[in-house]
Design a protein around this nucleic acid. Structure first.
Lengths: 342, 342
DNA sequence: ATGAAAGCGCTAACAT
DNA sequence: ATGTTAGCGCTTTCAT
């Protein structure tokens, strides 16, 4: 005796399964949800029929009913930057095993694009949100709190909003990096920083200044350029540094992309690293060791940042009213030849 | 006279707007959908009330009703590989302006993970799917056709399924690359290829063999290793090549990540490029020019691939029964110093 | 143990 | 021009 499989073009619903077995939809729902409350006999038959029909739950309908979905929104400033995509990797990995699905948006550091994504995600009924805030001009996150969606910020603190935050020890690692260069004897340093709006940028600059102070160096021996975290910005900044009356002997570059731009300029001028100019950069990328000379870099634990953020979000979903937490992960200074010390 | 704003903790629904204005929900729905069919007076009042209340549509409810959602699923083999994340960038960019939102999943080249994502996406009611098939052992895409979800494959053709496909001219570009090396006088070549299962891998190998034939070289002067498209695999393959009785004079590496692995080994052995060993790789990355010497690379238009795929999908959504198309984009050989020709 | 029925928020036929 | 109504697929009381 074989089950009659209803031939149909549309997806089978819980109703079809119920009809097949000859029970009510309520029973099917309960069985499929694993709530028991049905005889073993029925349980088996329901499971069998569901399988035979190829039944799959309609998550929209379920979501509509229980007003909660297993969707998590993720908004990143860029998909071209490995730092952020590694972050995404970490998040996806963690959330995947927790049964959540990711909605992805990218803001290109623009407040309005970011906002649009956030709104759509909300309309989709996301359960939670992971955000690397652009903090672009005009961006404000103050009203996100009212949306009632659990939110974890990563890497950067959103302006005007206190929430769970996972970041790195920007200040301390920048201080260590600067101290390293000063200790090696470089006198005139430059820092190609990110956009001024970002706390990340402020903290790193503060860290570098600390190092100068600790080692009793004049703040005038530090030149700061503000780049845009893009390759072109890095190139521009480097050009402008090299055009100075006293070009820096060593440069700290604020991220991976700007480093590429800076390198481009350094190479095109035929300058040698580190004898003509020493380089140290934020974001240790797999190719840092393949550059000649290998690049000294501050490695940021991008994937770990992602996993931590995902974990924090899951906890937040379980305990919505806990006080917000900040988790800071340590960066690491990987010393290689681009600064002259082996 | 100001509108009374109903104070409530839950999201306002279309009902709240209707009540506020004193019309039926149907009218509100029509006005908000821009279908007209209402007096200017009412239109204005509805718009005003919706805004005042902060009304936002519940997309799940809408989707349930109209059985179609503005969600597009995207499944990638990896989020660590810039090629794929650039692809994602292109897709996101295109889809974003078309009003679609992206669901992201990554398979890590594993058939079961990939399948799980596909199923969940389907349950979420996606309108369409962009897939870079893992083609991992056990993966089959034959039944995807029955799901009735428009599907565009990118980069690799899914096993057992004919569908829209966007890829690159793997065969031709591989042939050009090999010809370039042969013309430069290299006799013993090696190819660190990707997993055998992938059409990409087969096509490239075929292209290289073509070059050998055209230039009347013995096929024995080509050694092929199959890597896993990961950094570690590239390192292993390179080690094994260097351990041969006759190590290759020039190596073509199948992707960016394996290139990093190969470089790692080359550098650790103290070999010089190109005098000891020439290198040419698939995937031109921003850092290719910053390597010393700059790396000769076959650039694949990842973002363009993504945009094209997104475009194809949108057309497919509009014309579900059109015959499947394959769009092939040209790769470009960027000749740099790593092969000896300036 | 199981079923009937209501309803999540929305849209679309079908009235009027 | 606008309202009434049904129903998308599901879960969840509340009965039985």
């Amino acid at each position: 005796m074989s089950l009659r499989v209803k031939k149909s073009t549309r997806r089978p619903t819980i109703k079809d399964v119920a009809a097949q077995v000859g029970v009510s939809t309520a029973t099917v729902s309960r069985v499929l949800a694993g709530l028991g409350g049905a005889s073993d006999h029925v349980q088996r038959r329901v499971a069998k029929a569901a399988k035979a029909l190829g039944y799959r739950p309609n998550l929209q309908a379920r979501g509509l009913r229980v007003r909660r979905r297993n969707l998590i929104g993720l908004v990143l400033p860029s998909l071209r930057n490995p730092f952020f995509t590694n972050l995404a990797h970490g998040i996806e990995e963690f959330l995947g095993v927790s049964g959540y699905t990711l909605l992805l948006g990218h803001s290109a550091e623009q407040a309005d694009r970011e906002r649009r994504h956030l709104e759509v995600f909300l309309d989709e009924g996301i359960a939670g949100l992971v955000l690397v805030p652009s903090n672009a001009t005009g961006a404000s996150y103050a009203d996100l709190a009212e949306w009632g969606v659990p939110l974890v910020a990563v890497d950067r603190a959103p302006r005007g909003l206190t929430c769970d935050l996972v970041n790195t020890d920007n200040r301390a690692s920048a201080r260590r990096a600067a101290a390293h260069l000063l200790r090696l004897g470089y006198k005139h340093l430059a820092f190609i920083n990110g956009p001024k709006d970002l706390d990340v940028a402020r903290l790193r600059l503060a860290g570098i200044r600390e190092a100068f102070q600790e080692m009793s160096r004049s703040p005038e021996t530090l030149v700061v350029e503000n780049g845009d975290f893009q390759q072109g910005g890095g190139a521009n900044a480097m050009r402008s540094l090299l055009a100075r009356k006293i070009p820096p002997e060593a440069v700290i570059v604020g991220n991976n992309l700007m480093t590429l731009g800076a390198l481009e300029v350094v190479h095109s001028r035929g300058l040698r690293i580190p004898s003509d100019i020493a380089l140290l950069c934020f974001d240790d990328m797999p190719w840092a060791t393949s550059l000649r000379p290998p690049m000294t870099a501050i490695s940021q634990p991008a994937e770990e940042l992602g996993r931590t953020a995902a974990g924090l979000l899951i906890e937040r979903l379980a305990h919505p009213s806990r006080p917000p937490r900040t988790v800071t992960l340590a960066n690491q200074l990987n010393i290689r030849a681009s600064c002259g010390a082996v």
